[in-house]
Amino acid sequence: MKIKRLIFLSLLLANVIRCAWADVIPYDRRSVSYCFRLANINQYPKYVFIAYYPFPTPNYAIIKSGECVHFYHLSRPVICAIAKNHFREDSLRAYQQARNQSIRDKLQRYFESNPNLIRSDVKISAVSTLSKSNPTKSIEDVLTVKKLSGSTLQIDYDNVVYRYDDGTTEKKPYTEQDMRPSPSLKPKASSSKASVVGEGWLVAGGLSIVGLLSALFMRNRKR
């Protein structure tokens, strides 16, 4: 009896714990394009803005004005700024392209211990999938540099731009820094949970079980 209870409890717990999906797109979900853009970096012409990706392999991208930065969805980019007179792109590119691991490690050290680099605390995480019924095609976060002086780089979320399957675009301002405003266009009603799965399914399933039990009864009677 104890073993049966243990099995039941394990099944219950296992069902509550979700799978680690990694790059697999889960059932009933679809991929969505995500990027972020720094809106006002042309106001800081003496600085270079860089997105540093510590995971999965240390890498970086120079952020250009007006350009939306795409990245691997499991990365957590750190936005940094460095004065142009301290920036040597050639050596950084050499670290990036090196096949030798010890040289590639220099890239990580550069971003983690370079005293000239100013790091921001802004947290950026990509949205990689949405439910299949969600009409959003792409999400673009727009950030602005609020303060850049000495060793302080303050970057805030300004707005988010949603692009939908029907070609329309919606821009929504951030009211709270760590909460992305929801899109106004809601998932299609025709494929929302309530309409897709009604109680009629349970009735059909129940009738099938009754049919199977009847067949089982008839077969056992014949034997």
Binding site: A14, N15, V16, I17, R18, C19, P26, Y27, D28, K193, V196, V197, W201, L202, A204, G205, S208, I209, G211, L212, A215
Partner: peptide, 21 residues
Amino acid sequence: LISASTWTFLMYYWYSFGGNI
């Protein structure tokens, strides 16, 4: 009947509560 008896319950549960597919 076998497929209908399991599939309907599976879909109902999955769309209503989610879980590990």
